[in-house]
Computed example of a mutant assay.
Amino acid sequence: MKLRMKGFVAAAVAGATIAMGSFGSAQAASGDKTITIGWTAWSDAEFVTKLAKTLIEKRTDYKVKLKMASIGVQYQGVANGDLDGMLMAWLPDTHAAYWKKVKGKVDDLGPLYTGAQLGWVVPDYVPKDKLNSIEDLKKDSVKAKLDGKIQGIDPGAGLMQLSHKTMKAYGLKGDYRLVSSSGAAMTAALARAEQRKEWIVVTGWTPHWMFGKWHLRFLKDPKGTLGSAQHIDAVVRKGFAKDYPQVASFLSNMHIPLDQLQSAMYNARKTSYKKAISQFIADHPDEVNAWFKQS
Rank of each mutant, 00 (worst) to 15 (best):
A45H: 15
T49N: 08
K50A: 03
W90E: 03
V64K: 10
I56D: 11
G81Q: 08
K67E: 15
T54P: 00
G119F: 01
L109M: 10
L55F: 08
E57T: 03
M86C: 05
G81N: 06
A89Q: 04
I71F: 13
L87T: 09
L51I: 10
M88K: 05
V73M: 10
V121N: 06
D61W: 07
L55T: 06
K101M: 13
D124H: 09
L146M: 05
Y98T: 01
D84T: 08
K128F: 10
V126S: 01
A97L: 11
E46V: 15
A52K: 07
H95Q: 01
T49W: 04
K105G: 06
G119A: 02
A144N: 13
I153L: 05
K63G: 04
L146Q: 02
K139M: 01
L55R: 05
V126H: 00
V142Q: 03
I150D: 00
D108I: 15
D108N: 15
G115V: 12
P123Y: 02
P92M: 11
N80M: 14
L131Y: 10
Y125K: 09
D124G: 03
K103W: 01
G110M: 09
K128T: 15
I153T: 13
Y75L: 02
K100N: 08
K101N: 11
G81P: 04
T54Q: 11
Q74Y: 05
K63C: 04
W99C: 07
A89Y: 04
L118F: 11
P92R: 13
L131C: 13
V48D: 01
L83Y: 09
T94N: 07
K53Y: 07
K138I: 05
D93I: 08
E135A: 11
A96T: 05
Q76F: 06
G119E: 00
G119R: 04
K130G: 00
K139C: 00
R59N: 14
D61A: 15
L55Q: 12
I71D: 14
V73L: 10
S70K: 03
K103H: 05
K63I: 04
L112E: 02
L109N: 06
K67L: 15
